[in-house]
């Protein structure tokens, strides 16, 4: 899906936990997330901290969408 959407020229950031799969399918902008059953946040931290973590990750995703890349790029910490 990432690739077919991006084919229209729309930048897509793929936010996912298993980065190697994302690299295999061909996502260009990849932001690693927390865990498979809770990618954006961490329920063990409590609601507020989980949300802060989510905000941080989404900000990273938006940064990735504003970054020029010439190939597949993983946006690590």
């Amino acid at each position: 899906m990432v690739k077919e959407i991006e084919r229209y020229g729309l930048p897509v950031v793929h936010m996912c936990t298993i980065v190697p799969i994302s690299l295999t399918i061909g996502a260009n902008r990849i932001v690693p997330t927390v865990a498979i059953p809770y990618p954006l946040g961490d329920p063990h931290l409590g609601e507020e901290k989980s949300k802060n973590l989510r905000r941080h990750l989404v900000e990273k995703g938006l940064d990735a969408l504003q970054t020029e890349v010439d190939g597949q790029t993983v946006f690590e910490e």
Binding site: M1, V2, K3, E4, I5, E6, R7, Y8, L10, P11, V12, V13, H14, M15, C16, T17, I18, S22, T33, I36, P37, P39, L40, V58, G61, L62, L65
Partner: peptide, 23 residues
């Protein structure tokens, strides 16, 4: 097929950036 159709609809709706989340 999903990506092609979703992309088409997003474009038509004036979307300029996409966040795709996977579990």
């Amino acid at each position: 097929v999903f990506g092609t159709e979703i992309g088409k609809q997003l474009l038509a709706d004036g979307v300029t950036a996409v966040i795709l989340t996977s579990t």
